[in-house]
């Protein structure tokens, strides 16, 4: 019947229909069904500004290096509190316009960090602007491209009130009488990045992380030696070093140094812990620091504080989880 060797019509028709059939089963139908999701109850819609920022994000090709998916395996825990679910993409993955389709936000390569929760990890606008103007001005070993075309040089006199000045350090921009001012696109992009916060799910989380066997065993050991704190240096690298730098020197004009800081080395750690919990915006020469009360546990804060108090020439007595707990209780009471 199917004389493929001699009947070209038959051959071509069979190959076509076979492929179309398989494609419908494995791609078109599942894709069609997956469109049918609803947003999470507390999930905020993208603001107009953030949506414009998403357009900049796509047009600069950021998805080539940054994923936006927390996989359900333990190593992805640092990128979000729970594995990503289809609803997470309800507002962001819609067709952009007539010419462009729904953006490929999930990504396939993590040359840079995952951005699912970047709005929570790095809430400050100033940090983002500095980072976009030149990533190496805040993260010295970064290999991310700089985006100077999202900014403009302005004479100090012609700067308007509503212009947002980027405090680029002298090593990266140093022209007398001129400042770097963020263009609209930069502000939109930052608004989009700030909006990236993994929405919380009330009640039971539908899927959990697949644990790594090794970590499980370590946990067992850790429980035996109950008093030990987590690795402060590692936590510092993950949470604090983007601004205060690995060497604790901070950045002139943007983020204060921790090395040699009186606050960090104070015998009484109260102010240090308060700043970590509540954030800090008391000194005009530096950018605002976001609060970390929701992101870090008492033990983690104690570990970070101890790392800061004992590194880069700092030498102050260690603090315990208990002290942090007390101050947290006091701070929550005030609020």
């Amino acid at each position: 019947m199917f004389n493929f060797h001699k009947d070209h019509k038959n051959l071509v028709n069979t190959a076509l229909s076979g492929f179309v059939f398989l494609s419908i089963i494995v791609a078109v139908l599942p894709a069609y069904q997956l469109q049918d999701v609803e947003p999470l109850p507390k999930q905020p819609e993208l603001t107009e500004e953030a949506l414009k920022g998403l357009n900049v994000f796509i047009s600069e090709g950021c998805v080539a290096c940054h994923t936006q998916q927390v996989r359900n395996i333990e190593m992805d825990k640092i990128w979000g509190a729970r594995p990503s679910i289809p609803s997470d993409y309800y507002y962001s993955k819609q067709r952009l316009d007539v010419w462009r389709q729904s953006p490929s936000l999930l990504g396939s390569e993590r040359t840079g960090p995952d951005l699912t929760n970047i709005g929570k990890r790095q809430p400050g606008q100033q940090w983002h602007l500095l980072h976009l103007y030149n990533p190496r001005s805040v993260v010295s070993v970064s290999i991310m491209p700089a985006y100077p075309w999202l900014f403009e040089e302005k004479d100090t006199i012609s700067i308007r009130e509503d212009d947002i000045i980027v405090p680029v350090g002298p090593n990266f921009y140093n022209k007398a009488g001129k400042k770097i001012v963020a263009k609209e696109e930069a502000l939109q992009l930052v608004a989009y990045l700030q909006s990236l916060k993994q929405p919380e799910i009330q009640g039971e989380i539908p899927i959990d992380f697949i644990p790594a066997a090794k970590k499980k065993r370590e946990k067992g050991n850790a429980e035996q030696a109950s008093n030990s704190l987590p690795d402060g240096q590692q936590l510092y690298m993950q949470t604090c070093s983007a601004c205060h730098q690995e060497n604790g020197q901070g950045l002139v004009g943007a983020f204060p140094p921790l090395a040699g800081s009186a606050v960090v080395q104070d015998e009484n750690p109260e102010l240090l812990i308060k700043i970590i919990l509540q954030g800090y915006d008391a000194r005009s020469e530096y950018a605002q620091m976001p609060p970390f009360a929701d992101q870090l546990t008492d033990a983690e804060i104690a570990a970070i504080a101890n790392h800061e108090r004992s590194s880069w020439g700092n030498d102050a007595p260690p603090i315990s989880e208990e002290e942090v707990k007390k101050i947290r209780a006091f701070v929550t009471q005030l609020n």
Partner: peptide, 9 residues
């Protein structure tokens, strides 16, 4: 069929 995760499939 390209909205949401449909695009990803």
């Amino acid at each position: 069929f390209q909205n949401g995760l449909g695009e990803t499939v």
